[in-house]
Structures are given as C-alpha cells and as structure tokens.
Design a protein around this nucleic acid. Structure first.
Length: 617
DNA sequence: AGATCATGCAACGCA
DNA sequence: GCGTTGCATGATCTC
C-alpha cells in the first residue's frame, strides 16, 4: 500500500469536532473527543486498544484502499484492487484468512473530491452506530433493503452487482470485490461532498473493527457490513455538516433553534443547550429533554389537566444502560410500540428504538445487550469526566449571564412559536425522513436526545417551542409536604441551573407552563457532608396549585430564547395507584428521570418507568 | 468508601 | 404552640 503510514496496530484518526453532535460529547484531558455511549462499550473494546494509523493521504488519483492487514504492507494474499471506472482505483481486501487476529481498515488516497470541509472524523462516533441502544437507525444504513425508503439506484445496482458476484466468483474474491464495490459506489455517490480530508481523518481501532465485524456477521460479510456502516456514517455526518448554516451568534447558554416549518400541532421539543462549534473545534455537551405530544399509551396514562400540551415523560431513564435492559424485555415480549407513546418522552425512546432496531438492526441489538454492564461502567466513567469538564466550562463562563437573563427577559412569552428573530439556526429539516436519521440527529448531542429526535422524526414532529429540558424530579413525600421545598437532583442541578456561590442561593422566577403563572422560588443548597443538597424552596404554592402529590413529578425547562426558567408539574397518578405503588414495598429511590442510571431496580427492569406505571395504573 | 438523596428532627422565630 | 429553617442521619447506590 503506497502512501500509507502505519504505526503499530492503530488505525488512525485525528480527533473530530462536530461529529459529537451524535452524542453527548466531552473532551478528554488529551483533547480528544469522547462520546457518551461509546460503542466501544458494546463492542467490548478496551480503551487502551491499539489502533492503526493511516495518516497520509497524498492527493492523487488512486482510490481509497481499504484492506485488512496487520502490517503496513499489503497482504500477500490480498487480491488486486477491484477495477474501478474512470480514473479511480479501489482496493478492498481482507487478509483475515491469513491473519485473522488482526485486521484494520485503511483508507488511502481518496480522490480530492471536495475540499468542502475538514471534519475531524472520529470513527469512535461511527462506532456508535453499532451501539444498538442508541439512536442509530440501521435502515438508514441499508436503505435499499427497506422497501419503504427511497432507493438509490446506484446502490441498488451495486447490490445487484454484488449479488451477482457472490453467485459467480470464489468467496474471497467476491468479498473483496464486494468491499471494493461498496466503497467505490459510496465514493462515487458522495464524491461531491466527501473530501479526502474527510476520509483521512477516520480513525478506527483495530479491535473495534474486529469486534464490530465479528458482531456484524463475521468474516468478509461482517467487514462489508462494517464498511457500510462507516461509509454511511461518514456520509451522514458530512451531509449534516453541509446542511448546517453558519454558526449562530454566540449567546451564553442561550441558543435559539428555529423550526423552519412550524407545525401547529407539534410538540414541545428539546433544544440543545450547547452545540458543537465546528469552526472553533469545541464541543459542548448537551442534556436535552423532551416534551412530547400527549401520551396515548394505555400503560402510561397521564392525568395532568393543568395544561393543554403534553407533559414530558415521567422518569423514564434516558440512559440506555437501562434502555438495554428494557429493550431486552421488550424484545422478549415484543409488544408493538404505540405511536402515541412512542411519540413522547423518554419512554418513547425505548419503544421507538426497540421498534426501530427490529429488522435490520436486530442483530446489532443483540450484540449490544451482551455488553451492557461493561458499557455502563465505562459510560459512567466518561460521564464523570464530562461533568468535570462541563463544570469547568461553566466556571469559565460567568453565571452572571444567566442571572442577568432571568432578570432582563421579562418580555418573553410562554407560548411563543418559532421565533425568526432568534438565532435562526435551522435545527430541523423541513422534511423528516427515515433515511436521514443519522445526519439529522447529529444536531443533538446526547443519546437520549438522539433517540428522541429519531422518534419525533418518525412521527413527523417538529419543534415549536424553544424550551430546553433541564431536569425533572419525581416528587417525594417530603417534596410535596408542607415544607415547601423540593430536593433537586444534584448532578442535573449543578449542570443546568445557575451555579450557586452561597448557600442561600438565588431567587428564580419559575413560570408555570401550564398556567403561565410565575412562581418566585429559591434555588439554594445545603452543605451536606462534603457535598451539597440542592433545593428548590417556596414550592408549596406551586405544588398545591397543581395538586401535585407524591409520585407526580416536576419538570424544569429553560426558554432558550429568553433564558427564563419554566416549570411544570405533571400528575401521573390515578385513583388507587398510590396504594398500589406503596404495596410493592420496594423503596424506590432516585426515580427522577434526570439521573435515570441510578434507577435500576433489582429485577433488572426500569424501576422508574415501572414505578410510574404503577402509579399510573 | 464515598456520593446521593429522602427525611427526621432540633433550633429558631413568631404570634 | 406552630411553622419554618437548616442540619444530621440513614438508606441506597456506585465505584
């Protein structure tokens, strides 16, 4: 392989900025981006895995060469490059038969197709596509296998060619050519938008490749599927980046996303509080929630009457460590997800993903469940790093800005629709389509967000209101008692609410979304051991006015346009449910959805969701 | 072991 | 005496 620099076993990559919109993204100490829900978790790849470096892509007419090799030299058994029309040559080879223990993907010398942009593509993100508990829609990767999706003629032809070749030639040769053709066709169809830089910055860890290929069927076919995933991801990311308009004017912790196609019946949707700044190369984490359309799921009734719009989902954990468990349960019982339920909130994320992943993604789903526990460990470690990083960012940016916003944005209304005068970053495509899920979803950063967006997209929903989910809390007895204070989850409070210097905290005007009434609450903390307990005080009237009781929950949002805080009380209870909930006897702790990862019950199910169901039925 | 969080309860203020 | 405030403690969870 000419022009290839190989170092050890590593596949390369620069780091990537911008792709992190796929996931909750942080920045490690070494500056490398990391992602929540790292697909490596599910792939069982250690962090310290060796990788293959492929850093040198001199401009030329040769075509990318993808091979499986343990060294920088081409495998002796590697077949010659597949014939490529025009002035391209492609090579997709695999030497797994000769050195099965090591394989790599090397992209070499992609044509200088377009200097359009320079995404630093971390295929760690792409690996995330393999993370079945996340948002990736396998049907978007193989659209030609989906009768419902528009079929790319080229891809169709390519597939036919592949099938023909599979029927004709020897297996190895077929596979190699398949790989070559896959890559070639992809490049042909994306030559307008994919540059050499794009390909150059792809990094894949060797072990990841191996694991992924193995889990995708193993052997050549697995490699082919993996390649498809990679290419699809690159394509989607790239298209997304191209769609992105110029970065909106920076506004501290206040970003406005306008729905270009306002839908009068659309649901509240989350907006990313932070977004990737592709130009600055910085990545900001996002914690998004969702306020969906009314639940219609019979197992999940909501009796809230305070407002006309749908409540956010009760404490169904967005974290897919739980999702995995839940998904497995769902797979076993295989109930058909209901659209209404699928439409809103975290709960829909589970259901929709279950649905989404069935079919093409089923295999991926299975592979994800096997590594859930390990995945969670690593994910949590990354999350801690992320929180630390985020906190540091927050300290750098003055909290005074937020306070000022609270004080100065009195004119903001609660029922504003998409406001053309605010940022104007077109966040949503006007024509949602299943086939563009990945690229669309790349605009949000957390896995739960992505799931939500996927669900929304599939339901044809668009954002209407510029509310950003901050946190929610399932109310305990002490929260709804006469003390008039609500304990807030620490992590989310520190992350999304103004940083508190003094224990007395600050006064926050919380506008009741249901009634538009403004409640002046005090957000403060108590020192507790070496930590803090965050409280929302003066909540008594709010609780009483909304008739909130134990088991109900509150959701706090911020209006991304004017920055003011909004609160909503949601009742999930039905008559008799409280008794039933108590009858279960099991103490239910940490049921607030904002820290769902702690809400796993002993049965491996979703304590939070089940708890809500208990109270709701 | 440490962190988080629900809640008990003492201290305090006020009528 | 009653309501409020703030701390302490214990249960639970995570590492």
């Amino acid at each position: 392989m000419n022009n290839m620099q190989m170092h050890d076993d590593d596949v390369v990559v620069d780091d990537l900025h911008g792709l992190g919109r796929f996931e909750s993204v942080g920045e490690q100490e070494d500056g490398e981006m990391w992602l929540d829900s790292d697909p490596r978790d599910l792939l069982g790849v250690d962090d310290d895995d060796s990788s293959i470096f492929c850093t040198d892509f001199p401009p030329l007419l040769d075509f990318p060469c993808i091979s499986s090799s343990s060294s920088s030299s081409p495998s002796p058994s590697a077949p010659p490059p597949a014939p490529v029309p025009e002035n391209m040559t492609a090579c997709l080879s695999s030497s797994s038969s000769t050195s099965p223990s090591s394989s790599s993907i090397m992209m070499q010398n992609p044509m200088e197709i377009s200097p359009a942009f320079d995404p630093q593509i971390d295929i760690d993100v792409m690996q995330d596509l393999l993370d079945t508990n996340d948002m990736w829609d396998p049907t978007s990767v193989f659209p030609y296998e989906d009768n419902n999706n528009p079929v790319d003629e080229q891809q169709e032809q390519m597939q036919q060619q592949q099938q023909q070749k599979q029927e004709e030639g020897p297996q190895d040769e077929q596979s190699s050519e398949d790989l070559g053709m896959v890559f070639l066709e992809w490049l042909k169809s994306n030559k307008e938008s994919i540059s050499a830089e794009d390909l150059r910055s792809i990094k894949l860890k060797k072990s990841t490749i191996e694991c992924a290929a193995q889990r995708l069927g193993g052997g050549k076919e697995g490699m082919k599927q993996l390649l498809k995933l990679i290419l699809e991801w690159v394509q989607n990311h790239h298209l997304h980046k191209r769609r992105m308009p110029p970065e909106p004017e920076p506004e501290p912790a206040q970003h406005c996303f306008q729905n270009p196609n306002p839908n009068p019946i659309s649901a509240w949707i989350p907006h990313p509080p932070y977004y990737a700044d592709p130009t600055a190369g910085t990545m900001f984490p996002s914690m998004l929630g969702y306020m969906g359309t009314p639940f219609t799921h019979p197992d999940y009734p909501m009796v809230d009457t305070a407002a006309t719009w749908a409540p956010p989902p009760p404490p169904l954990p967005p974290h897919f460590s739980l999702y995995n468990s839940y998904r497995e349960q769902r797979l076993n019982s295989a109930p058909a997800p209901l659209q209404g339920f699928c439409s809103g909130g975290f709960g829909n994320q589970f259901l929709c993903h279950t649905q989404m992943l069935q079919g093409h993604g089923e295999r991926l789903m299975k592979m994800g469940s096997s590594a859930t526990k390990e995945a969670r460990k690593k994910r949590m470690a990354r999350q801690r790093r992320f929180l630390s990083h985020h906190r540091h960012q927050r300290q750098l940016s003055s909290t005074a800005g937020q306070h000022a916003r609270l004080a100065t944005d009195a004119n903001c209304t609660t029922t504003s629709h998409a406001n053309p005068g605010c940022g104007n970053w077109v966040f949503w495509p006007s024509t949602p389509a299943a086939g563009v899920v990945s690229s669309d979803v790349a605009a949000v950063t957390t896995s739960s967000d992505r799931r939500q967006v996927i669900s929304d997209r599939r339901q044809g929903w668009k954002p209407e209101k510029n509310l950003r989910f901050l946190l929610q809390k399932v109310l305990k007895q002490s929260d709804v008692g006469n003390l008039g204070r609500i304990v807030l989850p620490k992590k989310e409070a520190e992350m999304h609410l103004p940083e508190l210097e003094a224990r007395d905290g600050i006064s926050i005007a919380m506008e009741d979304i249901g009634t538009s009434r403004v409640w002046n609450m005090r957000y403060r903390f108590w020192p507790n051991n070496k930590s803090r307990m965050y409280l929302l005080e003066n909540t008594g009237d709010f609780v009483r006015s909304n008739g909130l009781q134990e088991g109900d929950f509150i959701v706090i949002y911020s209006d991304v346009k004017c920055g003011k805080y909004m609160i909503r009380g949601v009742k999930v209870r039905q008559p008799g449910s409280k008794l039933e909930a108590k009858r279960t006897g099991k103490p239910q702790r940490n049921l607030h959805a904002s820290s769902p990862s702690q809400a796993v019950d002993g049965s491996g199910g979703l304590s939070s969701s089940s708890a809500v169901k208990e109270t709701a039925t």
